[in-house]
């Protein structure tokens, strides 16, 4: 399926609008990042802020904020979690999100309730690929990577 040059990674988990991805670490923490679609829509990202380590972020309260052009906004959050850390490399060079959106995670978070199925609201695999491509096509988003 043609995804308008938007890269998709089947092993990651996505919100149903494909704005963010999350992946589980061996110790039960999760990495949160933005998708190729999101970085393309945003354009050159100039600022990233992650909430202080140790801060609790309930579902719906963003773990991080971004700024590109003169647009500012939240990175959506679908998990009741605590911030473990922001990715120092991304905080210092936000352009990494434009170059390598799946390599450059934004925040590492720990779910409040380790027993809960925190991945339930997310989609993954082939089902996610269909939705991801459908969004790129419906909104006519053609992904491109900036060189910085």
């Amino acid at each position: 399926m043609d995804c308008n040059q938007c890269e998709f990674r089947p092993e990651l988990y996505y919100d149903d609008e494909f704005q963010i991805w999350v992946s589980r670490e061996d110790n039960g923490d999760y990495l949160v990042g933005m998708t190729d679609i999101s970085q393309t829509i945003a354009g050159r990202i100039l600022h990233v802020r992650v909430r202080r380590p140790g801060t609790r972020r309930p579902m719906g309260k963003p773990v991080a904020t971004l700024e590109s052009g003169k647009w500012a906004g939240p990175v959506p959050n679908l998990m009741d979690c605590i911030i473990v850390e922001g990715n120092q490399a991304v905080l210092e060079q936000p352009g990494l999100l434009n170059r390598d959106p799946y390599g450059a995670w934004i925040a590492r978070v720990r779910p409040m309730d380790a027993n809960q199925d925190v991945l339930a609201p997310f989609v993954t695999g082939e089902q996610a690929r269909k939705g991801y491509c459908a969004r790129a096509q419906a909104e006519d988003i053609h992904c491109k990577r900036l060189k910085d």
Binding site: G69, K70, W71, A72, G73, P74, P76
Partner: peptide, 21 residues
């Protein structure tokens, strides 16, 4: 571009945005 409105090269309006979903 990217965010100004000007009259004859002089800025008369600056702009910016925010998004939430």
């Amino acid at each position: 571009p990217r965010n100004d409105i000007e009259v004859d090269g002089r800025k008369i309006s600056g702009t910016g945005g925010a998004f939430d979903g």
